[in-house]
Design a protein around this nucleic acid. Structure first.
Lengths: 177, 177
DNA sequence: ACGGTCATGTAACTCGTTACATGATTTC
DNA sequence: GAAATCATGTAACGAGTTACATGACCGT
């Protein structure tokens, strides 16, 4: 199962939603950590329905706008849980683009490298702030593992920031060419 | 430019190589950190040649086997450096699958969660060992930023391992449902 | 009446993985 | 002469992004 489908099923485990709502859900909830586009959402919802994992309840609605609300089915819940379990087994190879950049950085000149590291540093700090802000606002009412997402996110961001700072310092000292 | 192309150009910055060799290069060098398949390599090499970024030197060779050795061109080098610079600017959103799993983990039961965390922990420890082994063998003759790849890799792996250990402990204590 | 945002969708495209096909050359 | 590995490729597929098209409703 694709990650988009898995994510959608997960969202629907929480509550029935329509496509547009799912987009917002992923923007507000994990925010920086996970995203999903309409181009993935709507086709995925259709396929999930074909597979009987979700069920559509059209709401033509007198009041609000017409929308298609999906809810997860019993077999959808099972599929969700099984997929979650199975995907974790094969230790996912993380394709971290920055590792690739780093790997070839010896071919660049010192000035360029310093700028790249700096901009990366700024980016990470910015994201860390967003996470902290999000935590301040929502932590009280978040379920356990959603707090862990934030905690772990902060940890990795802090690790990266510290590595970037160290590297910058070493470049300054001439330790790194 | 696709990451495959960028990676190939980077490899050819080091020395001229043929397709098969590039595969080995990425397996041995960044190893756990970056991979690339034949299905990406050969078509990419053709496209890069069309674009004038690499040049093929067929070696029909009396001795060895017939192979097609590619070397990077001047404009290839420029393209490589520019792409490296530009890609870093837009702070890459890291699609870390485990974050998604974590985000939905409240829907699973404690036993399953414990097993998932454990297997993730084992996987990370295994990779850390590989990195350390690689470091022991090659560190002496690695260029600066390739050492940094290892150093940073170790840092992030250690961070993840420590987070996983903590979480396991908390599950045991009943701190996490 | 007009811009914003709610809401659903599709088409074209790029990227990457997997599996297969083919054959030459070493090695045992 | 059989198995392993060297070497190059292609076809089919699956996933995801981007950009576009469409229209309804809402506030001002």
């Amino acid at each position: 199962m694709s990650l988009s489908k898995l994510a959608i099923l997960g969202g629907l485990m929480e509550k029935p939603m329509h496509g547009y709502e799912l987009k917002q859900y992923f923007e507000h909830a994990p925010g920086v950590f996970w995203m999903i586009n309409y181009g993935s959402i709507y086709p995925a919802l259709k396929k999930l329905e074909d597979e009987g994992l979700v069920k559509a309840k059209a709401k033509v609605s007198g009041a609000g706008r017409s929308k298609i609300i999906y809810r997860i089915t019993k077999s959808g819940e099972e599929a969700f849980k099984n997929t979650l379990k199975e995907r974790l087994k094969k230790d996912a190879f993380v394709r971290d683009e920055f590792t690739l950049h780093l790997f070839f950085m010896d071919f660049l000149d010192k000035r360029t490298i310093r700028e790249m590291i700096k901009s990366k540093l700024e980016g990470n700090k910015r994201i860390l702030e967003i996470v902290k802000e999000h935590e301040k606002i929502h932590k009280c009412k978040l379920p356990k593992y959603r707090c862990e997402v934030l905690k772990r996110g902060k940890l990795h961001l802090a690790t990266e920031i510290s590595w970037l700072n160290n590297t910058l310092k070493e470049i300054g000292k001439g330790g790194l060419k």
